[in-house]
């Protein structure tokens, strides 16, 4: 699957488990400017549901795409405000 947006930052939370992928994604998003995209690399299978739910329930962020690879789950989150 191709990713057709510019990635401003990549957050590597491989190995970390709940709640750290969500918590660290939130902190990383706070450091971005409006419109920028954060790439999150995780190995926690729960991150697929958790990060999607977090993005849905949180103001100012939008989940653009989630890619389930062989070992790594990739998430692309845009800061919208």
């Amino acid at each position: 699957m191709s990713v057709e947006f510019d990635i401003a930052e990549t957050l590597d939370v491989k190995g970390a488990s709940c709640p750290m992928p969500v918590v660290q994604t939130k902190s990383a998003i706070d450091d971005l400017a409006e419109g920028e995209v954060l790439e999150v690399l995780a190995t926690d299978p729960g991150s697929m549901s958790d990060l999607d739910g977090w993005a849905d329930g949180t103001d100012g962020v939008e989940m653009l795409e989630q890619v389930e690879g062989d070992d790594v789950y990739k998430h692309y989150v845009r800061k919208t405000e």
Partner: peptide, 11 residues
């Protein structure tokens, strides 16, 4: 602790 930190991430 898990719920507190996660809720904080939700704002």
């Amino acid at each position: 602790l898990i719920l507190a930190s996660t809720a904080a991430a939700f704002g």
